[in-house]
Amino acid sequence: MFELRLVQGSLLKKVLESIKDLVNDANFDCSSTGFSLQAMDSSHVALVALLLRSEGFEHYRCDRNLTMGMNLANMAKMLKCAGNDDIITIKADDGTDTVTFMFESPSQDKISDFEMKLMDIDSEHLGIPEAEYEAIIRMPSAEFARICRDLSSIGDTVVISVTKEGVRFSARGDIGAANIVCRQNATVDKPEDATIIEMQEPVTLTFALRYMNSFTKATPLAEQVTISMSSDLPVVVEYKVAGMGYIRYYLAPKIEE
């Protein structure tokens, strides 16, 4: 059987909110390592990889590896029924085609269980090569979300350019153009407010803003976001999940032919 229990159930709610608009159906892989998922959006332009390590849960039992196919919109509907302070338990018995979500209020005076049908999903796993990135930007996640949102009102694509001056986000459209430059700023009171730019090589890449905006749904999960870029490679936008793992979004670039 498979069973996990997460006292901070709101994390799981936030994780689902972060991926449900990007991916319709996905296989969750349960193993002794943890609860993970890899899925592409329907047009295969973006990929999301989630890992919640088994050690991060208050209870985690996985007798043998299990793949659970779920419709993420339906899973999100069920998790929305959990209170923000609720403890969430996910259970699946071997050989059944359902998964059970159990929600316990902190004072244990309300216990709900929701059963959801599992699906058979044909999904292909991609091998993500380890890469040394030419530029890595760490910045406040709310700032990144703001930039993506603001540039969306100007154009459909963002050009991200890292130089020793800093990182420049540019968009252009019918009404005009916008450039937002963020400089390294490590001398802040709180580390979560810092912007750190590690650059081996200057790099400039172009991306569809629609996907970037979708990634920023993960903003409530982490104060900081890490953006890793190399020429002619998908960008990685990573949000840590409080001491448990991460959500990484990979987005293929637009390349001039």
Binding site: M40, S43, H44, V45, A46, L47, E124, H125, L126, G127, I128, P129, T157, T206, A208, L233, P234, Y250, L251, A252, P253, K254, I255, E256, E257
Partner: peptide, 14 residues
């Protein structure tokens, strides 16, 4: 304009 590539162009299927 620039062409939108897919992820499968960069990452191989396992």
């Amino acid at each position: 304009g620039p062409k939108q590539y897919t992820i499968t162009k960069f990452f191989q299927k396992l």
